[in-house]
Amino acid sequence: MTATVPSRPAADPTAESAPRPATPAGRGRSRAGRQLHGGPVTYAVLILFTAGSLFPLVWTAIAASRTNTRLAGTPPPFWFGGNLARNLDIAWHDANMGAALLNTAVVAGTIAAGTVLFSTVAGFAFAKLRFRFKNALLLLTIGTMMVPPQLSVVPLYMTIAELRWTDQLQAVILPTLVSAFGVFFMRQYLLQALPSELVEAARMDGAGSLRIIWHVVFPAARPAMAVLGMLTFVQAWNDFFWPVIALTQNGSPTVQVALTGLGRGYIPDQSVIMAGALLGTLPLLIAFVLFGKQIVGGIMQGAVKG
């Protein structure tokens, strides 16, 4: 498998091209011969998909603002009620969501920072330096990229049991602190974003390895580092399988572990469960509103092609 190189800003697929006057028909052929204007049907279908994508989230908020009794009624509520504050309060305190949000912020933040740092440095070595076993090591890294987490969960559990790390945050941080995908992603980016002459010149000037990393590699890698950081943060925030095994609802849960406890009847009030789901999702939704364009761009740039 080969991967597309995360493109340089010039070829940013998210960049909106300059608006051109629409032809009278509204969907004439553009000069590129390819990008046609969308017609009413296109818009209708897209709006339908958008509604389908957003509806469950909006309805989570609606259900979280109602009472449990109202949710057990027909027809289901379609608009907000006045119970949101109460439900959020119960979810925050009784269902441990407050602590869980803090834990998850720590976990996802550390994992994102670690992944970006280690991936950039290792990706730089794989992209620009020559050393023995380089190709073999790269192949090993890529080869395990698609191995599901289930495959290593038993030994991991044995390890954290031995170290007495069960229910401690490092049990979920350390195993995911580095990512093979991250190394590959940064390598692909630096291959073309960082001119080799620049590294050579810095070396000739007597710059040590750390200074090269800090003054040459990091500035060149910054856009890709931001993208990798955001994608890793989202992934770490939503990670489910391993945290559910390593942490417990009443110890130091991440958001997902706390939600699992809610779903298992820890609190039987459906409107409170929805308030918990809302709390757990809200931080990422806010991030999407703020950085949506960059995240979309990152996914499109990182799109790996067979």
Binding site: G263, M274, G280
Partner: peptide, 17 residues
């Protein structure tokens, strides 16, 4: 961005809804 928001929703939150 809108069609990507479900990707931001965790398995747990989505399943509960």
């Amino acid at each position: 961005v809108a069609i990507l928001t479900p990707y931001a929703t965790s398995v747990a939150a989505a399943t509960l809804v």
